[in-house]
Write a protein that binds this DNA or RNA. Structure first.
Lengths: 107, 107
DNA sequence: TCCATATTTCCATAATCATGGAAACGACGT
DNA sequence: ACGTCGTTTCCATGATTATGGAAATATGGA
């Protein structure tokens, strides 16, 4: 993953409201959630949420699809995996990162 | 890992100069590097680097130790592993995150 | 003690970011 | 075509962040 994109994705997640949105979308699964539902869950003004969703989509971490009058946003799991893989490399200098794998890869 | 700390650590890494510093420190290994060497490597003004190092140490991602006249900074691998583990959980909803593990945990 | 070196703190400045009201846009039902 | 609902864009505002010059602090050597 490219350096600038890594920074952009980190920045997209490095904000309380956006990280909350992303977690919500991960929980929601591949179908995602309509913007309105997200705004409701976080108690944000429509304009504010729209700003954050743009930030996340711009970074490639979430995807938008129109469905009727609604716009559904969903987490891009592959993009998140790319990010985590990049961080793991940077963290471990290319070596396997045992503690992380012990926690997440068992069984 | 706590939510706010996660945001703080993401924010610490979500800046080109700081991510570069962190990667440099990961490369440098447990001994780390003196602040001056880092400034030299990045071509930053001392005050600017000091600001970024404070940001990283405050987030708990790097550690500082005095050695003679120098201050050596080193990556805190455990903290980075915590961060990655937290992101992996958020990314995969608690499920194992196969693509990441395939890339990083083999052999 | 005095000087040189390494690093930080203080401060001001410019740039970027977060927020939400109001207006615009787009899709649907009538 | 009209009204409504969901969402975005436009815009202004306040807050936070990044940058580096200059002064302060700390360490070690002469």
């Amino acid at each position: 993953m490219e350096f600038k994109q890594t920074v952009q994705r980190l920045a997209a997640l490095a904000q309380e409201n956006r990280l909350t949105v992303f977690r919500l979308l991960v929980q929601a699964g591949p179908d995602g959630l309509a913007a309105g539902r997200i705004a409701e869950a976080l108690g944000l003004a429509p304009a504010t949420l729209s700003f954050h969703l743009k930030e996340l989509t711009h970074a490639g971490l979430v995807q938008a699809r129109q469905e009727g009058r609604f716009i559904f946003y969903s987490a891009d799991f592959a993009a998140m995996n790319d990010l985590i893989a990049t961080l793991t490399e940077n963290c471990c200098g290319g070596e396997p990162c045992l503690p992380v794998c012990d926690n997440t890869c068992k069984e």
